[in-house]
């Protein structure tokens, strides 16, 4: 009796009774159209009309420029992240307060990772001066940041749920805007906004939710000075704690993106129960 052949096709596991030519993988599934490219174990396959799959193979069937189905996309994320992590990320609701240098990159990172629901909040429009570090391009200038970022995310992950709030957060509306969230990312530019959110999460209303705040990321100081530390049971702080944005100490893409990477990683660790 032949041993079973275990393979993955576009992230989904399949078990075959016998070796099959690669082309049978889509011919036997009516919904799968003939691919433009076949990637076998990470490498494009030139003679895919002739090749047979073998046990352990990973096959990706690609239609150029076409988004995979929700099911396929979720399978690929699960394969990348592991089922255990992905189940936490998929059901999570993460708020992002401010969609500038920090917030736009945090949102992109979390959407790419597969967080299920993002609550995007900013009152501002994209300006030319934002392009040095924020995740927008010239075509976005003059648009609401909430809309521009939601559109950008939808081009690589149209399945993430996005709630948009084009408003200025304050100590009164913050509780209703983020009421659904498990974790909120503080990504404001001004110190007063950072302080307001830290106090909100120090209050009983948000005692069971986590905040990931940032402080100290301007200039070209050592990237290794940017760290993540736990301030309280539910507040995490990313940054070097020192480098404020000021004349001669501007906000530049590399350190801003490093701090955003710290924030996004802290969010994922919280969601995974590792903090």
């Amino acid at each position: 009796m032949n041993a079973k052949i275990r393979i993955t096709v576009n992230g989904k596991r399949r078990i075959l009774d016998k070796p099959l030519p690669v082309r049978n993988l889509w011919e036997e599934q009516k919904e799968t159209k003939k691919p433009d490219i076949v990637i076998l174990n990470g490498f494009p396959l030139d003679d895919w009309g002739q090749s047979f799959v073998k046990d352990g193979d990973s096959i990706v069937l690609v239609k150029k420029g076409q988004m995979p189905s929700r099911d396929e996309f979720e399978s690929m994320l699960t394969a990348r992240n592991s089922p255990d992590l992905q189940k936490h990320f998929r059901k999570a609701v993460v708020g992002i307060a401010g969609l500038g240098g920090l917030g736009s990159h945090v949102a992109m990172a979390l959407a790419r990772t597969g967080v299920g629901h993002l609550v995007l909040v900013d009152f501002d429009l994209v300006e030319p001066s934002n392009l040095n570090r924020q995740c927008y391009d010239a075509a976005d200038i003059g648009r609401n940041k909430t809309d521009a970022l939601a559109d950008r995310i939808s081009r690589f992950n149209p399945f993430v749920k996005i709630s948009r709030h084009q408003l200025k957060l304050d100590k009164h509306n913050v509780f209703s805007v983020f009421s659904e969230c498990d974790v909120v990312v503080e990504a404001f530019d001004r110190a007063e906004g950072k302080e307001m959110l830290v106090h909100a999460f120090g209050s009983l209303d948000f005692h069971s939710k986590c905040l990931v705040t940032a402080s100290g990321l301007a200039g070209i100081g050592s990237p290794n000075d940017i760290q993540t530390r736990r301030l309280t049971h539910n507040i995490f702080l990313c940054g070097d704690l020192v480098s404020a944005a000021k004349q001669g100490e501007g906000l530049m893409a590399p350190r801003v993106m490093i701090a955003a990477g710290h924030q996004a990683t802290a969010v994922l660790r919280i969601l995974a129960g590792r903090e």
Binding site: K194, G202, S215, L217, R230, L231, H233, L241
Partner: peptide, 25 residues
């Protein structure tokens, strides 16, 4: 690791961190 207030009396063995946000984002 708990948010506190300036008028609170410190206790032996306390760890005090002074959080001051700095601008930039």
């Amino acid at each position: 690791q708990e948010e506190s207030r300036a008028e609170i009396e410190l206790q032996p063995g306390d760890h005090l961190f002074l959080y001051i946000p700095v601008g930039g984002g």
